[in-house]
């Protein structure tokens, strides 16, 4: 005698781990003591542990026999009978005596393959829609960012780099003509500034350093040569406007060769 519908359901639940502990024990006892239960259980165990090809063929042959033996319903109803319509239920002529439990692991594999196919479909749609992979866009943006950073750094570097010192070519070529004091020092008192430092720095063509001393010398001591040197020094560092103003002052002073200064300003 085969298992009843209710027993099939119980075995189903047992194999799917849906039974409470007490019910599980009852089923286990039935499997151990009842040959029909044992057979049904072993069939499922074979399925679960994976049937070899011959086993599957045998099982399918058994199923084929079972189909032939079925009365009333005979074969599967049409597709429409599979659809729920509110009144759907098992037709009376469709027996349920020998429901086989499918290979759950094979169903699991199918389920995974279904997901795989869906994911592949998504991937294919991405490609056919011409969706640029996010990674690609990100790489492109990253590249753009790097390029912008490089440009910024190079620009800042150029902007912040030490500027080439201004070079007044004429002055440098004719500088000796612009040293008008006696560079030879003597222990004897000689005419000259009260503070030689501006003059000395000027002779060394360190105009930037010389400017404050020369300015002081002019403002305190009214040393016109210091004023001349100051004008030259301004021209030497590229501050031509200041140099021109000094030139205007020098034009009013007869003892200074203002023409000499105007040469380096042109």
């Amino acid at each position: 005698m085969k298992l009843s519908n209710a027993d099939r359901d119980r075995l189903d639940d047992y194999l799917m781990n849906r039974l409470e502990a007490a019910d599980r024990k009852v089923v286990e006892q039935l499997i151990a003591s009842d040959p029909d239960w044992k057979e049904a259980f072993e069939q499922q165990q074979l399925l679960k542990s994976g049937l070899a090809q011959s086993h599957l063929v045998n099982r399918l042959n058994q199923l084929r026999d079972l189909e032939k033996k079925r009365t009333g319903g005979g074969d599967l109803p049409g597709e429409s009978a599979l659809k729920a319509d509110g009144e759907a239920g098992r037709p009376e002529n469709v027996p349920m005596e020998h429901e086989e439990i499918p290979d759950v692991q094979a169903l699991r594999y199918h389920s995974l393959m279904q997901v795989t196919r869906r994911l592949r479909g998504m991937e294919d749609r991405r490609k056919s829609d011409g969706v640029r992979p996010k990674g690609g866009r990100r790489r492109w943006l990253w590249g753009l960012g790097v390029a912008a950073s490089v440009i910024l750094v190079v620009g800042l570097g150029l902007w912040m780099r030490p500027k080439e010192p201004y070079r007044n070519q004429y002055l440098l070529a004719h500088f000796n003509e612009y040293v008008l004091h006696n560079k030879t020092r003597s222990t004897e008192p000689q005419p000259g500034p009260k503070n030689w430092k501006g003059y000395d720095l000027y002779v060394l063509q360190d105009f930037q350093a010389a400017i404050p001393y020369l300015k002081e010398e002019w403002e305190i001591n009214r040393d016109t040569l210091a004023l001349f040197y100051l004008g030259v020094s301004y021209a030497g560092v590229g501050e031509l406007e200041k140099s021109e103003k000094i030139l205007e002052k020098l034009l009013k002073l007869e003892n200074v060769d203002s023409q000499k200064l105007s040469k380096i300003l042109n």
């Binding site: 049937l51 692991q105 169903l107 995974l112």
Partner: peptide, 30 residues
């Protein structure tokens, strides 16, 4: 596909070669 087959078989503690046909048939059948 092969990795998934191996994965399910391994989890089920069976040899992949033994279940391969079954699994593929079930997949196609479903």
């Amino acid at each position: 596909e092969d990795t998934l087959l191996y994965h399910v078989a391994e989890e089920n503690e069976v040899n992949k070669a033994e279940v391969e046909d079954n699994y593929r048939i079930m997949d196609e059948g479903m």
